[in-house]
Structure formats: C-alpha cells, structure tokens
Design a protein around this nucleic acid. Structure first.
Length: 223
DNA sequence: CCAGACGTTGTT
DNA sequence: GTCTGG
DNA sequence: CCAGACGTTGTT
DNA sequence: GTCTGG
C-alpha cells in the first residue's frame, strides 16, 4: 500500500515537473508525510492546472461526520469501478499526488523496518489520486484525497505486496481533465505504468514516528 | 419504493 | 482490541 | 503507515 | 453521490 511518503523536491523543480504556477503557500517540503496531513496535490479547474492543499484520507462529501471512519488513505485500482464510495470521484475528481519517494515496511523479528523507495533518476513521482470536498453546516470545507494502489511490480514484491499507482507525465492531462468521463480509459491509464523502474534501501526506524521529519530520514541504513 | 451502507491493509 | 493523531 | 492512548470525578 | 438489500 502507500501509507507514508516524501516530498522533498525544490519548489522550482516541482513547478516545472507539473507545469504549474506555484504560490509559496501551496508548497512545503516534507520527509515524512503521514495520513491526515495537509499537503499539495495537483488538480485541474476552470483556470487550468493548479496545486491545492488537501488532507490525506478521503472524506467523502456525503459523510455525516467530519471524523468519519471512512477516511480512506488508499483505493484499490482492481475494484475502483465497483466501489460506490469512489464512483463520483473517479468520474470527475481525479488528482496527482506529488512525491519524491515513499516508505514501505517489512517486519523483521517483530520490529518494523522501513524502506525508502525512489526513482533511479531521482525524478518526481505523480501518484494517481482521487479527491473530494466535504462541507456541512457550520463547518469549514475539507478538501481531501486518497492514493490509488495496485499490486506490487516485480521489484516491489521483494519489499511489499502493494504499491501506489504512478502516472507517466504523458497521461497527466487526460487523468486530470474533469470532463473525461470514460472510466475504461482511466483504468487503462492506471495500469499502464506498473513496471516503472524503482530503487530502494532500508532507512532508520525514526521514520516510524511521523513526528520525525528531517533530511536525515533519507539516509541509507548501514550496519 | 426507502433505508442503510459505503474501505484498505496486514496479520492471525 | 480498537481508535485517534501525526 | 506507525505510535500512542484508551476515563471519571471533583477541585483549583 | 451511488449502490445493495428488503
């Protein structure tokens, strides 16, 4: 699955990769992004492609409570079209989730060993995401998102069973366009880049606590 | 029709 | 065991 | 995802 | 919002 990631690219580089104009309030680097945190995602609105701050953990617009138990951090691509929870979002509220890497854990002798996964060319990731906005009387709007997951590719299988869906820049426009309502094409896109080349190494268990957030978290663990 | 649920992951 | 907070 | 909390009462 | 169950 994908339950923790990093976004440590410089703002200029970030802007260029996603072809957006960035205001500083919409971007902050982090070495340890955990569910419930508010982070930048890329969406397309009337004015074009923009970065917008949203909370990780999809809170569907129909939720009765803002602290609903249905705050999904992931959505399985295999069952995406069957799930009523995601239907509306998949049709017209798709987003890109920018990342420079992500963490997955292996259990070794009862302890949880985190691994950092990144691209060999150190390029950014665009995870495929869905977003929604929740608004009930008296409360502020809550924009939130979920990351779509898929089965681990051959490389990732050595670490974990699942991984985030990673989109190729070639598909950004089609994925983001809210007027594209052909779900079959979107599912095809989601399955098209699974064999992307990845690299990884073990990192400190300091990653486990989301309160830790510094560049040293990315250092390769040495024994 | 209305009422009620709506999810993923890992581990056992 | 299960939920909340980060 | 992992870490950490998980409760009530009365008094200040 | 959308689907399933009764």
């Amino acid at each position: 699955m994908c339950g923790r990631y990093t976004l440590a690219a410089g703002p200029i580089y970030f802007q260029e990769y996603f072809d957006i104009d960035l205001s500083i309030s919409q971007y902050a680097q982090s070495y340890n992004i955990a569910p419930s945190q508010t982070v930048p995602v890329i969406v397309q609105n009337d004015t074009g492609r923009i970065a917008q701050q949203m909370k990780w953990g999809l809170l569907p617009s129909w939720s009765k409570e803002s602290k609903s138990k249905y705050q999904m951090i992931n959505a399985r691509v295999e069952t995406l079209t069957e799930k009523k929870t995601f239907k509306h979002c998949l049709t017209s509220q798709r987003c890109l989730v920018p990342a420079t890497g992500f963490y997955e854990w292996t259990t070794e002798n009862g302890s949880k060993q985190p691994h950092y996964i990144f691209r060999p060319d150190y390029e950014l990731f665009a995870f495929a995401g869905l977003w929604d906005v929740w608004h009930k009387q008296g409360d502020d709007e809550i924009h939130s998102f979920t990351i779509i997951t898929t089965a681990a590719n051959q490389y990732m299988q050595t670490i974990h069973q699942r991984m985030p869906v990673i989109l190729d820049p070639h598909n950004f426009d089609s994925w983001l366009n809210p007027d594209n309502h052909d779900l079959n094409i979107q599912i095809e896109t989601l399955n098209s880049n699974r064999d992307i080349e990845l690299e990884s190494y073990p990192v400190s268990t300091r990653v486990n606590n989301p309160r830790n957030n510094d560049a040293d978290l990315l250092e390769r663990l040495t024994n």
